[in-house]
Structures are given as C-alpha cells and as structure tokens.
Amino acid sequence: MTFVQLIDCRTSRFDEMDRLMDTWVEQTRGKRTATHAVVGKDRSDASHFIEIVEFPSYEEAMRNSNLPETDTVFRELVALCDEMPTFTDLDVVRDEKLYATTARQFFETVGTAGELPPLNGLMAESYHDHDPSNEQDVIGMDAMRREADMWRGAFDVRFTIEDQISEDDRVCTRWTFTGTHHGDFMGLPPTGREVTMTGTTVFRFDDDGKIAEGWWQYDRLGLMSRLGALDPLET
C-alpha cells in the first residue's frame, strides 16, 4: 500500500532548507526509497511549508528513515525550523490520477459503438492535434470529431490501453488499436480484415482539466500493409 508522509514546518530560512534537501537527494542517490516529493508554501503565511513525500509502502519509508544520510539531514533541517516540525503518516486509500482517467475516457469514447458521443466533456473547443500522417494539424474539437468519425467509418474501433504515464499537465498513453476494416479508408475499399496497430499519444490538459493538445505516433505503415495496400517487399 502506498504510504505518504506530511512534514509540516515553519521557517524563515527556506532557501537554506531547499539547498539542504538538494544535498540529501544527491547523497542518497541509488539508496533512497521515496518516489515523489512535493513542497508547498502556505499562501497566507510565507513561513509555513508542508512537504509531501510518497513511498511505495510504510516499510519502504522506514528503510528511507534509517539511512544515515536521512538522520543527518533531519537534524540539520530541524535546526533551520522556527519550531519543531510535525509529521503525519498516511496510508493511501484512494489515488486517482484525474488527467490519466480523462485520457482513458477519450479512447473509450472513440471506441464506443454507434454514434460518437459528445467530446465537449473531454476536449477543449480549441483542441490542437498533431498527427504526422496529416498534412496539416487538426484544429478544434469539431475537426477532431470529424477525424475520429473518419476512422470509425472505416473500422469498428477498439482501443486497449497498455500503459499510461502522467506528469504535470501531460499524459502519455500507449495503446493497441483493433478493428475490422468495413468501410473506405484512404481510398482503400473494405477488405473485411481484422487488423491491429500500436501507438502512443501524449495529451496536454488545460486549466479546466480538458484535453487541449495531442501528439500521435502510430504504425500507420504497418496498418496499410495489413490491409494489403502495400506491395510485398522484394527479398
């Protein structure tokens, strides 16, 4: 179970504390078990800081605490605080990566049978799409809807999400596309073939939590080959 520790402190010497944490990060390289750390400053009190440190488990957090470098830095950190910091230990009972969930919902929506559901709950009106297979970028949610309808008109689209990585306002999704070719696709009449294609999409989210921009990379050449649109390679 993921474990999070909150360190609540007051200090007028944050710059020194920040440098101290940089030292700890360098000294514990390859040994520390913390996976993520965030420091926040109270908007109403410039001397009030809270650090949030994430670990894979409570046991891993204890391993981290027992590092000699951690003990040394802790004593130096306390000396920089205006008062003794307080600690809150939390077992994570819910961890929802909201941007990743929205990205997943996009692929599920595009793969919905029948008429394509509205995208306005997922995408910004000014959505900007970068697809190297298109001569020009697709601009606007309505244009992206037409792009999706083009694929859906040619295949019974199904996406399997293989992996997702989130950082800041971006989500990278590795996916597998599966579909039966039942409609015209780039001038190629229906073949009835079941095809698969792998790809990766990076979405950027706006301040409203909607998809504002997307970058696509996928094996379109392999797809066309599976549809019989390419001459066999000479051997």
Rank of each mutant, 00 (worst) to 15 (best):
F203I: 00
T72W: 02
G153E: 11
F205G: 00
R43P: 15
R94I: 10
E167K: 14
V73R: 10
W216Q: 03
C172M: 13
V4Q: 09
H128W: 13
T88D: 07
R170G: 01
F49D: 03
G228N: 09
E108W: 02
M21F: 05
D22M: 13
H182Q: 12
L77V: 02
G199T: 06
Q105I: 00
A212E: 11
T191V: 11
R152T: 06
S225T: 13
R13G: 04
V73P: 02
T180A: 06
L188M: 13
P189H: 03
F177I: 05
R145E: 09
M197D: 04
P132D: 06
L98A: 14
E59R: 14
I52P: 00
L6W: 12
G121I: 01
T173H: 00
G40E: 05
F107T: 00
R193T: 04
V195N: 03
A46G: 07
V110E: 08
I161Y: 04
W215V: 09
Y58R: 15
T23G: 11
E108I: 05
E69F: 10
D207T: 08
F159S: 02
L230Q: 10
A113T: 10
E135S: 11
R152Q: 12
D169I: 06
D163G: 04
G187I: 01
Q217F: 08
A124N: 08
I139R: 15
L80R: 08
R193N: 15
L227Y: 03
D169H: 11
L6N: 03
M17S: 15
L6V: 08
L223E: 00
M141E: 14
F106L: 11
L122N: 03
E167F: 08
F87Q: 13
L230A: 10
V93N: 07
E125R: 11
R193D: 03
A124F: 14
D149G: 03
E60F: 07
N120I: 05
N66C: 07
R29A: 14
D207V: 08
F55T: 03
A37M: 14
D169W: 04
R32S: 14
A113W: 06
D169Q: 14
D22Q: 15
I161A: 02
T235K: 09
I165W: 03
P190S: 14
T72Y: 00
Q5R: 15
W216I: 07
D206M: 05
I52L: 15
T191H: 08
M17G: 12
E167S: 10
Q217G: 15
M62Y: 02
D208T: 06
S65K: 10
M17R: 12
R152N: 13
R193P: 00
G199R: 07
Q164W: 02
P118W: 04
L119Y: 01
I165S: 03
M144F: 15
G228W: 01
R174N: 04
E147M: 11
A143M: 03
Q217H: 08
E59P: 06
V195S: 08
T180S: 07
V25M: 13
Y127A: 01
G140E: 07
D231H: 12
E76Q: 13
W24F: 14
